[in-house]
Design a protein around this nucleic acid. Sequence first.
DNA 1: GCTTTTACAGTAAACGTTTACGTAAGAGCT
DNA 2: AGCTCTTACGTAAACGTTTACTGTAAAAGC
Lengths: 339, 339
Amino acid sequence: MKNPPTIKDVAKRANVSVATVSRVLHNLSGYSSATKDKILDAIEELGYQPNAIARGLVNKRTQTIGVLFPAVSGYFSSTLLHGIEEYAHSKGFSVIVCNTQDDGKRTMKYLQVLREKQVDGIIFASAEVKDEYDQAISEMRVPVVLVNTFSQKQIIPYVKIDDRLAAYQATSYLIQNGHREIAMISGTVGDRIAGSPRLEGYRQALEDHGIACVESRIAYGTFNMESGSQAMERLLEGGVSFTAVFAASDEMAIGAMGAAMKKGITIPEELSVIGFDDLELSRAVYPSLTTIHQPLAQMGRMACEKLIALIDDGEDVASSMVAHKLIERESVSPLHRPS
Amino acid sequence: MKNPPTIKDVAKRANVSVATVSRVLHNLSGYSSATKDKILDAIEELGYQPNAIARGLVNKRTQTIGVLFPAVSGYFSSTLLHGIEEYAHSKGFSVIVCNTQDDGKRTMKYLQVLREKQVDGIIFASAEVKDEYDQAISEMRVPVVLVNTFSQKQIIPYVKIDDRLAAYQATSYLIQNGHREIAMISGTVGDRIAGSPRLEGYRQALEDHGIACVESRIAYGTFNMESGSQAMERLLEGGVSFTAVFAASDEMAIGAMGAAMKKGITIPEELSVIGFDDLELSRAVYPSLTTIHQPLAQMGRMACEKLIALIDDGEDVASSMVAHKLIERESVSPLHRPS
DNA sequence: GCTTTTACAGTAAACGTTTACGTAAGAGCT
DNA sequence: AGCTCTTACGTAAACGTTTACTGTAAAAGC
């Protein structure tokens, strides 16, 4: 037989109707154990596998979710994805990945594709939820959960940490270690998710400790390593002094450390660095990076849990503000004041 | 209307048959421009979106491919995935990610799910192609392409570099720099993909240069950073001397460098390190890592190209052995012989 | 011995498309 | 006028499932 066997072929071979085959497939009731055996044999002999597409058509369920990332490569997204995929798979869902590149047109395109493909739900990660998306999302009647972001227009359940607070604590930690000239390598300017909140936390911490915030001590990157290196170079050439730097992502922190060390600056002796995310990376580099831990895999998992709960029972689920944690490693040292 | 509008709703509203609607949807011929306008209006007003599931059922095409990774998190896989997803999307395909965890049972399960979901093709990455998979793959009549791996049983097109040669060159490079006591941090023992070939390349290079290979200079990791650190620690405690080390992955190299530096060993002055992969990472760390470049994103893209060619025109496609390249950075220096 | 229940199974509609085929009207030609 | 050809549609089957509805015989209850 050329084409893959269908339930009809099974039915024919077992001398029963398709309805009966379907019943044993779902082990419902309504057949003798004798016919069950016949059917099972037929399935075995033909190597029959159900067609999920046909199934999806009738029950309007595809057991598939879509995940939108602004960037799929890198530790951050892939760890999140890992958590999501893991849980989804355990619950019998597949995940379609979409790499929006933080581009509006692409995002809208993906949203449309996901709609056409009849996904049962969507996880939207890390990127700002533009009005346009908000609207598209509410038009397609599909559950959505946000991770590492939130929506100001609609109430869409999210899973994230308190970025502002975490940044506040990171900066305060530096201050507690005696630093007063603290630079920041912020994320993309205007980014309302991991950009401005962390910057605000930094500013607030300085202010609360009576330290003036000088704008030339702030450099902007795009969260990745390369941009971290460049930001550090700009800071170094900027003529402002600083004894510590808070980077809004581990990747930028690593890039910044690399750039600083290349200039002969020793870390943490001459410059303390604190990162944000706690990627596996930060444990392995030397000096290992003191940073804010964000339980990414777990957050992905939680988002997926919420989504599937939404899909299955449709009840509303609550958002989760998950706990972050400051991890002390080697890249920060108390300021040795010239005495 | 509660349910999303279907093509029938559109047809009704435009006073035409579903066939005509379908025709304009695919802009085939067979309708006047007047009816076309009517239909377009109806589509607009109803906010109609085609249902790809129903479509998939009739044309036996889902415009979806599956990608199997042994591990989704980490730079390596995510870069590969990026290349794959990018190309797939540009050609109107969606990608389902599967995280096999290098586990046989899980892999088989995923293969089954992908079959049931009627994916049009499969990309199998990085993991060894066990006989079991080979068989499952040939049973489901779906194109498959391999990336970063190959099959010894069947001829399945692949995209990969010459691991053995690359390892040979990496080791030779160390030798050319005057090193003779060269350790290796190999990948998972028994791994026939990125494990033994690279180890063999290392051995061969030593042999060809008349250097005896001492087994205690070989440590085994699992390609990730943590295992690299541990391997380095074992090497250091092992009592053998070595002035250079070749790690079978950048992640292990970074981990190893971290562990060495933690012990006060300076790189590259006291110890040269060469990695493998050229992840973005290796450029950013300090000292930046000399390594073998593997064009991962491009390889993902190529694999996806091949797969879609296979899907669309069914012609056989050739495998590609892509070029690697040694990237000289800072982690290797010529051996300063005590003169 | 009668009705009622139960167990087992088949029939057919439905899900939302695509597409082969049919048909009617008009155009073009002889 | 009669013929064919084209254009512009409509009809209905098919894709592979699920499931509500029926049907029937045997078992159970009286």
